[in-house]
Nucleic acid binder design. Structure first.
Lengths: 342, 342
DNA sequence: CGATCATGCAGAAACGTGACTGTAAAGAGG
DNA sequence: CCTCTTTACAGTCACGTTTCTGCATGATCG
């Protein structure tokens, strides 16, 4: 390349990077030759020299033998999409990596930092990365003393309390919960918020828990919940598929929604806008979370390190539809599946 | 590191990579010291030296201003997941990249090869990558003379013909199609297969086309299709959300499914197992496609180059549910949302 | 007992950059 | 006319590996 342009390696480097003291004529000449040859500087060499790869790891939780859920819930997909866009806008690319601590996988790629989705209490991956001096930003507040650089999360307690108040206002007397058996922060915070709310309003908790990664178990748990002698007249499902699961279970028991049963679930899926009836959902705003996580991470990569983790709380959004209103609203029917922009 | 173990750099390299002529004692000693120091070889340096980065690009189509759909359809998510797993199993990691030809994005990361989803006719990205000597495997058969190394695809014509025969066997007299306005291969092949089938059985085509990336337009198109004077008594929707869209439209027109209207859509979503009624879907088997694409790519990276593209066709699967059967089957109800393993 | 050979390791080159240093030539100033 | 500064580049080193070659030392064999 240098030979082809008739200049030195240094001049090529300076010309392409806009450094050094070169006359515009030389700069243009070098770039022309580079274009003509289709020359691309070696990313590996640049990384080796500068210590920056422009790569950000995206770690997704492992469930059982499958490397990751990733698509189990629309949440992950939306979040990953927003994160990729945000990273790209700042010149970074995302590498999808499993949460295993297998060295060979992680050491084979030069990362500038990592986004960790829902890290567990003493996540070995996070610890290892931090030990290497890499910034780590987590989606979901870190449990225990996990030394993340920053984190982004919703205010799950507030969201659940708000949602339960909404159901109560719609006439619910006994609200049930469909929750998970896992101990991740989301499940734990949401469940305790539910229990606290129950205590506050003097209602006996009515809930069923199931392993959230097993789609079959969700349908069974929904059925169990509605089969109970103290059957709730309103249910909140913590996980994405719970809406259709509960709707199917309600049909099996001859329960009309929303007349006999009010329904809300936490979901990012657009299908709930066109189910029969449309189901009220709690959105965790994954796009905003994905964007925020990446911004914080790149700030940490490029900027000065702050002391103590940077925290950012993203508000949730309750999308009220027919399933949680005793008297259906007489507003005009909004077009189904309208894309929410943010 | 070498100093800490009291040996030379060469010995460290040989010990960790299992090469050279070293006694087990030395090997163990070096590995011990490496473990103790938490030493990880530099991926950048290794890539520079060996010319292999262990990174595979995954390029997703761009729609409008949004960098990519990625989640618009469960297909992409499933496919990406399977691809990531398959890559990981062979020691590679996936980098998500946009289909833009912006040099700065692509040249910042050292790739060993790339998976391209649904490349367009004269995709500049593919051409550029091939020019650089990198193997490119596409999901979806390449249009025109796109010089991909290999490709994987379904037999869309056969799938559509099969599906239409299924509907006809269930009693459909006039089958409608909900299709897209885009010219990608999937849409084109499926639509012509539909037209061919119509000609074969002597039915006038009844179809509505809409821009597939706009979720609102799908609902409107579904409505249009059922509002036609020559209203079909069965509809096949080419895109994932069409099932719920058509179901909602059918309700608005007071059409019972499957009694008045048979319904099938192409989807990987599990929600169609629990809709009312459950909807028959055509699965393109994204997991198998994602796996196959990665296997072919890594084979090309590591193995000898073949002449001419390697082609691989993955069979589709018609998951028959209530919506496409005039007489509902009296088989026992299968548990909803059962995970299909493959 | 000397020649040959396997063993166990060290030395050095090279991968392609970017950052720093060096140095001619040209122009400015006294 | 000589010196000093500025301009316009070229040279060189270092990043951390892998790989090839080289060189001792001890063992084996005729």
């Amino acid at each position: 390349m240098a030979a082809a342009a008739g200049v030195s390696i240094t001049t090529v480097s300076d010309a392409l990077n806009g450094k050094g003291r070169l006359p515009d004529a030389t700069r243009r000449h070098v770039r022309e030759v580079a274009d003509r040859l289709g020359y691309r500087p070696s990313a590996a060499a640049r990384t080796l020299r500068t210590g920056k790869s422009g790569l950000i790891g995206l770690t997704v939780t492992t469930y059982g033998d499958e490397p990751f859920t990733f698509t189990e819930f629309a949440y992950f997909a939306e979040m990953a999409r927003a994160a990729t866009s945000a990273a790209l806008a700042r010149g970074y690319a995302l590498v999808i990596l499993p949460a295993t601590s297998r060295h060979d996988v992680w050491s084979n790629v030069a990362l500038d930092g990592t986004v960790v989705i829902d890290p567990s209490d003493h996540d070995p991956v996070v610890t290892e990365l931090v030990r290497q001096g890499l910034p780590v930003v987590s989606d979901g507040r870190p449990a225990g003393t996990l030394p993340v650089t920053a984190w982004v999360d919703n205010d799950h307690e507030a969201a659940v309390l708000d949602l339960l108040d909404h159901l109560a206002a719609a006439g619910a007397r006994r609200i049930g919960l469909l929750t998970g058996t896992t101990t991740d922060t989301y499940t734990r915070l949401s469940t305790t918020a539910y229990l606290n709310w129950c205590e506050r309003v003097g209602q006996d908790p009515v809930y069923e828990a199931y392993p959230a990664h097993d789609p079959c178990a969700g349908a069974v748990a929904a059925d169990r919940l509605l089969a109970r002698p103290d059957r709730p007249d309103a249910v909140y499902g913590l996980f994405d598929p719970n809406g259709t699961d509960l709707l199917a279970a309600a049909r099996r028991y001859g329960l009309r929604v929303p007349d006999d049963l009010l329904l809300v679930c936490c979901s990012e899926s657009t299908v709930y806008a066109t189910t029969e009836p449309p189901i009220t959902t709690l959105s965790l705003k994954p796009r905003r979370i994905g964007t925020a996580v990446v911004q914080l991470l790149i700030d940490a990569i490029e900027g000065v390190e702050t002391d103590g983790p940077v925290e950012q709380v993203i508000p949730t959004e309750l999308i009220v539809r027919t399933s949680s209103q005793r008297r259906p609203p007489r507003t005009t029917v909004s077009p189904p599946r309208s894309p929410s922009k943010d």
